Amino acid sequence: MNHVIAFIIKFVMVAAVLLIVLTWAFDVPLVDTLLISLAVTAVSYVMGDLLIFLHAGKPEDQSTRNSIASFVDFVTAFLLIWLIGQILSGTMSEMVAPALIAALVLTAGEWFFHKYVDYKVMAGYNNYKTG
């Protein structure tokens, strides 16, 4: 259940950022933005939050793991937004700036989301006390 809640929190964060950046600032259609949000959330949660963040260093070295996972999340978000946006819009160059801006904002949010994952979702991994 913790993973479902974390996934929903991440989707809301990603969708909010992409709605502001893609839909409001760059006129990307709402449906396209929601599809991109779902793809970014799914891939980055599994790859960035569960695999890389948890295994990129020693469990007690949260800062190093967070830095590595945040960088991977930036690259993943940028590439997914750019490539899916290109497929949906048909223009490659028009999606570079929105993808870069959105990935930068998402990376800032990911730093805090990783702390949530560390302490609330995977607390047993680091022997944190929950509650």
Results as ranks from 00 to 15, higher is better:
residue 124 G to Q: 14
residue 33 T to Y: 04
residue 82 W to S: 04
residue 54 L to W: 01
residue 127 N to Y: 14
residue 45 Y to A: 00
residue 42 A to I: 00
residue 74 F to Y: 09
residue 83 L to R: 02
residue 123 A to F: 12
residue 35 L to Q: 00
residue 47 M to Q: 02
residue 60 E to A: 09
residue 41 T to V: 01
residue 124 G to W: 09
residue 56 A to P: 07
residue 64 T to N: 14
residue 46 V to F: 01
residue 82 W to H: 07
residue 102 A to Y: 08
residue 31 V to W: 12
residue 95 M to F: 07
residue 72 V to C: 13
residue 58 K to M: 06
residue 82 W to M: 09
residue 91 T to E: 09
residue 117 V to H: 00
residue 62 Q to G: 02
residue 70 S to K: 13
residue 75 V to F: 13
residue 105 V to W: 10
residue 70 S to W: 07
residue 40 V to A: 01
residue 98 P to A: 09
residue 100 L to E: 06
residue 95 M to Q: 09
residue 49 D to F: 02
residue 97 A to M: 15
residue 74 F to E: 05
residue 47 M to C: 03
residue 123 A to W: 08
residue 50 L to I: 08
residue 63 S to H: 06
residue 36 I to Q: 00
residue 33 T to K: 02
residue 108 A to R: 08
residue 61 D to H: 13
residue 111 W to E: 08
residue 97 A to E: 15
residue 94 E to P: 12
residue 101 I to G: 07
residue 51 L to P: 10
residue 84 I to C: 02
residue 113 F to A: 01
residue 72 V to I: 14
residue 82 W to Q: 05
residue 126 N to R: 12
residue 44 S to Y: 04
residue 62 Q to R: 08
residue 49 D to E: 04
residue 130 T to R: 12
residue 40 V to I: 13
residue 33 T to V: 09
residue 48 G to Y: 00
residue 42 A to E: 00
residue 120 K to V: 11
residue 74 F to D: 04
residue 65 R to A: 08
residue 53 F to V: 03
residue 35 L to N: 01
residue 34 L to R: 01
residue 42 A to H: 00
residue 52 I to N: 02
residue 44 S to A: 10
residue 49 D to R: 02
residue 90 G to T: 10
residue 102 A to C: 10
residue 86 Q to R: 10
